[in-house]
Design a binder for these strands. Structure first.
Length: 654
DNA sequence: CTTAGGG
DNA sequence: CCCTAAG
């Protein structure tokens, strides 16, 4: 949480130096790609802070990533190391802090022991996998990943353990993360790291497992936990959480354990997998209960993409759950089980689904803490026990629009709870609750929001691979990508916007200035008393061009079509946005050309000539075409110009 | 849900 | 941009 705050601080840093950011991301991206963990693209600021990559960023890197993906297996090792390092660097400070804060030494010791144990298990598994791989199983890629992950994890997991683990490279940070994670979902860094690891391991492990014994996995998964006696569950709980529990509720224990295992970083996940698939399975069922997960797991021949998806899903679920749990748990540190229980339930509720608006708000605010208010959003959700399905559903609903690949990325990001990524959903309606949340902590909420996002994303992803996504095809992207949540861009990181701009503009030409980077988020007081945020995302030249192109192709008025065709990659920019922008363009184009001879002149007039005249001309042309009424009585001007435009160079453009 | 228009 | 009405 605290870490999150730090991110928030970034605001100042709008990354004007997007160039730098980009470069960094680009550099890391390939490697990242190789690593499942790395998936999340993160921009490292000068401070060393990690900023979640935006969709745009992801897109940019996307090519890279995709490319890499094909080959990544080989590279993976190197990539991971690098990534780890980078992460470490950036986040280490925070992480450590948390660590210190975190669990008691005793707990740590236990954890370490557990981790070691897990590690051993993992080793075995790896070996098995390798053998399998050598045999030529398709899983190969997965295996590699897994091994890598495990390696990372280990070091990370036990800072103490380091000596034992071969990888000393990995900083103690990881360990701190893990612990922290279990105790608190804390800083972004932590979250991202652990979650990633966890996800990765989990997915990989699961994948592997599936290869080995698909059937078993499928059928038994849950059962194992069920079979455990309460005492055993307690034992497991103890190991997992480093403390004993008096709770007798088997269900609760199972849930708890499963969740923690899944979530918890590498170690837990790994252990989990290795020891009992069941647990994992269980977790999945409970959390996601999705066919998707199951199917993915079950399929032996998973493609990389699928794997990725799977990972994402698991990660998302895990993360979400974890966070929730963590939060709930942490608070009630009193240790009363009852409290924990309650908190857990609450968490579950929370996860279920914040309103879009809510989410957005959260991301922006970055409220560092989960507010109790979150529960409000949850209100809607059914209480009782959380059914996995409900989660999914909620998520889906919320993100229906968002769910582009970007969303998926989010999922990854989701794994990192910390990263502020909220997928931005525009049309959500503001809610009072939200408003209150916002007011409360600008900083906080990130986690929650993220979590929710993750969940949502995942769920959505899981549910579907939505055609759109598929179309877009950014499957790979999804892998690499992180996080991105758009919301982040706008709100948290101005940088994102900048980046985006760069991306787009880069190809053609840098846009003027200001724009991009700033997301002006202005909160406007509503009569109701709620605050509504206006996020402003400057239109880049590229976007404008795309829009014009789309209009030319589909015709004005078919915004949804245009959106699908030309703005698939832009999760923000709704059809309404397109419409609005077009309206503005029309206005501009008319205004612009009042005088026929002045193309050059137009420019001169306003120092700011964001939109090239050619485009405006083109716009005018299109407008005319649309209207098909050159003879508009109303605007002679328009007509005249239009005519001129036609004759002129305009047509050539685009 | 998608459009269109107003604010 | 946001919001709302209308198809």
């Amino acid at each position: 949480m605290e870490t999150v705050v730090g991110i928030e601080d970034n605001d100042d840093g709008k990354f004007e130096d997007s160039g730098v950011d980009r470069s960094s991301s680009a550099l890391s991206s390939p490697k990242q790609i190789s690593n499942p963990i790395v998936y999340k693209l993160v921009r490292v600021e000068g401070d060393g802070r990690l900023v979640p990559a935006t969709d745009d960023e992801v897109m940019e890197v996307g090519d890279f990533l995709e490319y890499e993906n094909s080959e990544m297996h080989v590279v993976a090792n190197t990539g991971q190391n690098l990534e780890c390092i980078s992460i470490e660097r950036s986040s280490s400070g925070k992480l450590r802090l948390e660590c210190s804060e975190g669990t008691a030494d005793a707990d740590l010791g236990k954890l370490n022991a557990k981790l070691q144990y897990i590690e051993q298990i993992l080793q075995k598994v790896k070996e098995e996998e390798k053998q399998r791989i050598s045999c030529g199983s398709p899983v190969h890629s997965l295996v590699n990943i897994d091994s890598q992950c495990s390696a990372d994890k280990f070091p990370v997991m036990d800072g103490k353990v380091q000596s034992e683990t071969p990888n000393q490279e990995i900083p103690s940070i990881a360990s701190s993360l893990n612990y922290t994670h279990s105790n608190q979902s804390g800083s972004i860094d932590q979250c991202s790291r652990p979650s990633e690891g966890g996800i990765e391991s989990g997915s990989s492990a699961s994948a592997v497992y599936s290869n080995l014994k698909p059937d078993f996995f499928m059928s038994d998964g849950e059962i194992c936990l069920d079979k455990l006696s309460i005492r055993e569950l307690h034992e497991l709980f103890k190991v997992t959480f480093g403390r004993e529990t008096t709770v007798k509720d088997k269900q609760w224990l199972k849930r708890r354990i499963a969740m923690s295992l899944t979530n918890s970083c590498d170690v837990s996940a790994t252990t989990f997998i290795i020891k009992d698939n069941k647990i994992v399975r269980k977790f999945e069922e409970e959390s996601s209960g999705n066919m998707n997960t199951g199917s993915l797991i079950s399929s032996e021949n998973m493609t990389e993409e699928e794997d990725v998806n799977f990972k994402d899903l698991s990660a998302a679920n895990a993360c979400g759950l974890d966070d929730n749990q963590v939060v709930s748990e942490t608070r009630p540190e009193n240790g009363l089980e009852d409290e924990n229980h309650q908190s857990e339930q609450r968490a579950a509720k929370r996860i279920r689904r914040p309103t879009k608006r809510y989410i957005e708000e959260l991301s922006e605010n970055e409220s560092r803490e989960h507010n109790p208010k979150l529960s409000i959003s949850n209100k809607n959700m059914g209480l009782g026990h959380v059914s996995p399905t409900s989660y999914v559903r909620a998520a889906r609903n919320v993100f229906s629009e968002v769910r582009t690949y970007g969303t998926r990325f989010d999922t990854l990001g989701g794994s990192d709870v910390q990263i502020p990524c909220v997928s931005r959903i525009r049309r959500s309606h503001p809610r009072k609750d939200i408003a209150s949340l916002l007011k409360i902590h600008p900083t906080g909420m990130c986690k929650t929001a993220k979590l929710s996002n993750k969940l949502l994303d995942h769920s959505s992803d899981a549910d579907s691979e939505i055609p759109d996504k598929a179309l877009k095809s950014r499957m790979p992207a999804k892998l690499h990508q992180p996080p991105s949540s758009e919301p982040v861009k706008e709100k948290h990181c101005p940088a994102i916007g900048t980046i985006e701009l760069q991306q787009e503009s880069r190809p053609k030409r840098p846009e003027p200035p200001s724009h991009t980077s700033d997301d002006n988020i202005v909160t406007v007081p509503t009569a109701k008393g709620g605050m509504r945020r206006k996020h402003h995302r400057a239109w880049t030249l590229v976007e404008v061009i795309k829009l014009v192109e789309g209009v030319s192709r589909c015709g004005a008025g078919r915004w949804s079509e245009i959106k699908r065709l030309s703005f698939a990659s832009y999760s923000y920019r709704t059809s309404v946005d397109l419409k609005d922008k077009w309206r503005n363009l029309l206005k501009a184009s008319f205004a612009l050309t009042p005088a026929p001879a002045d193309e050059g002149i137009n420019l001169r007039k306003h120092g700011t000539a964001p939109i090239p005249e050619k485009i405006l001309l083109r716009v005018r042309e299109l407008a005319e075409m649309n209207s098909q009424v050159p003879s508009n009585s109303g605007s002679s001007k328009l007509a005249a110009e239009a005519g001129r435009a036609h004759g002129g160079d305009t047509s050539g453009y685009l």
